[in-house]
Amino acid sequence: MTATLVLYDDEFRRITQVCDRLVREANARIVYVIDKNGQLLASGGDADRVDSTSLASLVAGEMAATGGLARLIGENDFSVLFHEGVKENLHISLVGGRVILVVLFDKRSSLGLVRLRVKKCAEELVQIIDVLLQRSQMPGATAQFAEITDDDIDNLFPE
């Protein structure tokens, strides 16, 4: 089977707390934590304002393409991307080589402040993600899915 990432309530709550704190401390509008595969793990701030599913997929694609570029010139990765808009900006960073931290901010904040706060939060996120990855590998992490029946699957596709 392909690998599985399991996100439990505990880690979800801790990641959400980091997002909420980063929104406050960086004076940001929205913070997202996305896995490199393009799945949104958690968010903070006014997250419903943006189509987060699309955003997560595009950011992951962009990060993957940037990684490809980095390797072309002999770097492992470019860990930070910055997009400057007229009203709003995106600060995108790779954390612990595993998840992507996205900060959307406007003129109430600044690139310097965001960079500073992201650095601090990234250390904490790495610790949480390490725990999350360990727990994903533990026996029982996906046990309840052993009971999926063919009928359960068929019921997803009513004729």
Binding site: A3, T4, V6, L7, Y8, D35
Partner: peptide, 12 residues
């Protein structure tokens, strides 16, 4: 990679 999110009860 399948992501199982217990917090939001979702499989991706």
């Amino acid at each position: 990679m399948v992501t199982i999110n217990y917090a939001q009860r979702e499989i991706h």
